[in-house]
């Protein structure tokens, strides 16, 4: 008797009323916040097709998608994208490494702070992009000024946030660790560096954003390859579809980089109460 009742109710739950279950699926897939962006996209497309928005002002979304397909299949977009990514990676690697090394020197020793901190605090007030002419004078127009600019841009957020992270490690934890007999090296390894990790990751996130911005500027000044070069030649030929496509790629990579650091944070800072609640 019981088995009949239960099998009946299972059948009703999974298959009964197909319209209602379709609606339920649709409401799960549909996010109301997507409504207005999609509507704007639709208006843009209609505007382009009816000639209200000429292609030399802004290409239609469908044209951008078509260009994306063409340039991906021809290998043009992947190649330029690869060149740009390599530049960012090289610049980031240098900038993060130098920034972290300087922050450790300044954060862990008094003498290091006296030597390192004042010049960096002064330099960071300079608008980074104002250095571009000087970089061109120094490094010419090859890869060096581009990577150098990205490295310098990434250096400051890493330095400032890691230094701040080291200095704001709870003094009470340090005191306790001393009582429990930790040597200076163990203290740095077990207490200071893990305590400064949130600051470092925050700095890394800023650094990624700055690096991307520096890349755009550096490539648009002078480059034969890379996304910036693609944008430059598109500008000369009034190809707004390529420009919009490159903007979308910039945005997509910025987003991907940010979520990469967030994933890194979730792994490295699993102990944090804000992550524990999730």
């Amino acid at each position: 008797m019981t088995s009949i009742v239960s099998s009946d109710s299972v059948a009703r739950g999974s298959m009964g009323d197909p319209v209602r279950s379709l609606k339920r699926i649709a409401s799960k897939l549909w996010n109301p916040r997507a409504t207005s962006p999609l509507l704007l996209l639709l208006l843009w497309e209609i505007g382009a097709r009816t000639g209200v928005i000429p292609p030399r002002v802004l290409a239609a979304p469908s044209a951008v998608v078509g260009t994306f397909m063409d340039m991906t299949l021809s290998g043009e977009l992947p190649w330029h994208l690869g060149v740009s990514l390599l530049r960012v990676l090289a610049g980031l690697a240098i900038g993060v490494a130098v920034g972290a090394a300087l922050a450790l020197a300044a954060g862990l020793t008094r003498r290091g702070e006296v030597l390192v901190d004042p010049p960096l605090q002064m330099l960071r007030t300079l608008p980074l992009l104002a250095l571009v002419p000087l970089f061109i004078v120094w490094f010419g127009i090859g890869e060096a000024p581009k990577i150098g600019l990205i490295a310098l841009g990434a250096l400051f957020p890493v330095y400032l946030n890691l230094f701040n992270g080291i200095r704001s490690v709870d003094a009470k934890l340090v005191e306790a660790a001393r009582v429990f007999g930790l040597s200076r090296r163990e203290l740095i390894r077990h207490v200071v560096l893990p305590g400064a990790a949130p600051g470092f990751l925050l700095g890394l996130r800023y650094a990624l954003g700055v690096a991307w911005l520096c890349l755009v500027v550096a490539e648009q000044i002078n480059a034969a390859s890379g996304l910036g070069a693609l944008v430059n030649s598109a500008r000369d030929f009034l190809r707004t579809d390529v420009i919009v496509l490159c903007l979308l790629v910039y945005a997509g990579i910025g987003l991907a980089a940010d979520s990469l650091v967030r994933a890194l944070e979730r792994r490295a800072l699993a102990w944090r109460p804000s992550f524990l609640e999730n």
Partner: peptide, 23 residues
């Protein structure tokens, strides 16, 4: 000699047993 402080002063980035085994 060793101390138990008013606040537990456990390292939040180490599991409970790692805190106990510290040093």
């Amino acid at each position: 000699r060793t101390v138990v402080f008013q606040e537990p002063r456990l390292l939040p980035w180490k599991k409970v047993w790692e805190n106990v085994a510290l040093g």
